[in-house]
Design a binder for these strands. Structure first.
Lengths: 154, 154
DNA sequence: TATTGTTATACTCTATAACTATA
DNA sequence: TATAGTTATAGAGTATAACAATA
């Protein structure tokens, strides 16, 4: 009846079987994204900038004078939450919100001179990060391949 | 001196330039991961299960009797936060925490009969999701390629 | 009526410190 | 002394509702 094993607490000691978990695409994507973001956070910690803030600065630089709503929507950020983010960048004198003649409800977003200089500097830091990513992936072709695969999921 | 353009508020109206943003690997990974998780949440909404909870059930099924800490660590969940997650599954009678003879500090995690039956059912739902993902990616080879690329980033 | 920016609020996820009981 | 589970708590990120000014 009882072969000697404890039916209540098997509890081996070896490594865990994780095959079923690592077969989950969402799980793999999350781990990879977290790994890349961790490195971003580590690199950008010295300039106190989060990934979303970096994207905002880049978007404003490439699209000066756009409304908050437009920038927020492209990044999938709710306009209510975008307010705090922009205020943070404004308080650091990186971004300014100017009145828009064509629509007095809206704020036109621009980089300040300080913001433009700051972005030029951190863009170099980011390029270094991306080069590292491409190196890890196995070259530019592998990066393009990854982007193509990721696009099919969105 | 003034050519008629408003220097304060250019504010075009066309689409935004987003090339610099979409060139960011972390950004692409985040968008793809969110898209996949959104679909997971939509599908699993009917059974009130979050992605992390699904992973926990799968891991316990494949590794019955392991300590909470072991399961949590594999998933990158802090043991403090794992307590609430496990209690939730225990309150739904999906998981039970049994005493461990070899270490009376620890809880050995097991699926209940209800939990095993529940997992068998939602595993089918998840397999359907994964098949859809593979289809979108372009087949099993494309999926394997994606996993290989993601692994190089972790 | 609808939209822009805003405030307030709440819920999830994540992170740390400190406690207890065991080891 | 270190570890397993726990509690409390705080910080991000994200979601909705409601308001004033303007369209």
């Amino acid at each position: 009846m009882d072969d000697g094993a404890n039916p209540i607490a098997p509890a081996e000691g070896g490594p865990l079987r994780i095959e079923a978990t690592t077969g989950i695409t969402g799980y793999r994507l999350r781990r990879a994204q977290l790994a890349v973001f961790q490195r971003f956070l580590a690199v950008f910690d010295s300039v106190t900038l989060r990934p979303a803030e970096y994207s905002v600065l880049v978007l404003i630089a490439d699209n000066p004078g756009r409304k908050q709503t437009e920038i927020a929507e492209v990044l999938g950020i709710k306009r209510a939450n975008f307010v705090t983010l922009v205020h943070g960048l404004e308080n650091r004198d990186l971004v300014e919100r100017l009145p828009l003649a064509s629509d007095r409800r809206a704020n036109a977003l621009h980089l300040t001179q300080t913001g433009a200089a700051f972005l030029a500097r951190i863009r170099l830091m980011h390029e270094g990060m991306e080069e590292d990513v491409v190196r890890r992936l196995g070259g530019p072709d592998a990066r393009d391949q990854l982007f193509a695969l990721l696009d099919r999921l969105t």
